[in-house]
Design a binder for these strands. Structure first.
Lengths: 195, 195
DNA sequence: CAATTCGTCTACCATTTGGTAGAGACGTAT
DNA sequence: ATACGTCTCTACCAAATGGTAGACGAATTG
């Protein structure tokens, strides 16, 4: 893999796992196996690196979600399930991915604004869709924007906080993951289904 | 207020908002209006300060939740609603509080273990209670541990990520907060109610 | 009054941070 | 060959970091 991509990969994992401020360029460089100045050659400053990492992560997620939506059936609950399933795989494979998105909220707003702008169309489409399905009686009527946020909070929260699962005795085995995914799906289905 | 408490307060807000690693002792000292060495007088090291902040936050939340549970009626959905309402107020007044709990997952495990131990009895009681109510048919049958984690993820996520709400056009006004709280309650009620 | 404890301070220090300057290795085109 | 662009390196640097040493004044205690 090209050096630039290896840097992006390592930075994504480290930033998402430990937080942007907690990870120094030296640590990333050591992880990748190059000198710090090689990082600064590819990304002129740490801010640039953060930016690039965010853009790459947003795009990766966008693509996955988009494909899932396209492939699913017409029923909104099935469609939502498809998205969750699609997000769950990369999120578990790389817990850092969603952790990174979350990291945005504590970054100086300028950095996050770019990401927000990138994701805005995706969000708008989702909200419009929810509204439409609620009107048609296929989802529990509610504020579609807030419902979208709540779903996001649930999925991201559960994917990025292994601690919260550990204290209830959950184990990250293959079987545990399946069980978690199924409970998550049942939870959201119940939360969204029409009365 | 005594210096020690003022330090704890400021540290709670800053740690919860920006992350432990991102906040230096100098920043906290400046916020409180004392010299850095005054901090180190009260808390011999940054780790000690972090520890103290976590313990204080956990206790504050424990007390609030405990009171809410005691005061509520017998119906489990009402009881859960009471807890959410109780947590919502301090969480909104100080967004850092829940953010801090979340911060644990990225701390060196030793620091978080103490907090985990402190909260374990509370969690155990909640899980046992959920199990009991599910058996009695007053809640949707599911894995009570995972359901507890999912509720936690939803509440914490929505309270600590203003970004997720901003992108759907939500505003943190008094009316907005009420609307958010009500949607959150409806969401969880639907997710937990028996079929 | 003397001695001690408490709370805060100024003055430092070693390490780590993000970042600069510039040299050398490598291939490719002239 | 030589010149040039690409990529990585060693050698630094100024600022910020967590932390130490110890002085100062104000209470408290003998």
């Amino acid at each position: 893999m090209p050096t630039r991509d290896r840097i992006l990969d390592a930075a994504t994992d480290l930033f998402g796992l430990r937080g942007v401020d907690a990870v120094s360029l030296d640590v990333i460089a050591a992880e990748v196996g190059v000198a710090k100045q090689t990082l600064l050659y590819w990304f002129p400053s740490k801010d640039d690196l953060v930016q690039a990492v965010l853009v790459a992560a947003a795009q990766e997620l966008s693509v996955v979600i988009d494909a899932a939506v396209r492939a699913a059936t017409d029923d909104p609950l099935d469609r939502i399930e498809a998205v969750i399933r699609a997000v769950f795989r990369p999120a578990v494979r790389r817990p850092a991915l969603l952790g990174l998105i979350r990291e945005v909220s504590r970054l100086p707003s300028a950095a996050g604004d770019r990401l927000t702008a990138d994701l805005a169309p995706l969000v708008d489409r989702a909200v419009t869709y929810l509204q439409h399905e609620m009107d048609a009686g296929r989802l529990r009527p509610a504020d579609p924007g807030l419902v979208a946020s709540l779903c996001y909070a649930t999925v991201t929260g559960i994917a990025t906080e292994p601690e919260a699962l550990r204290v209830v005795g959950w184990q990250p085995s293959a079987a545990g993951l399946r069980r978690l995914r199924n409970e998550l799906l049942a939870f959201l289905r119940a939360a969204l289904a029409p009365v």
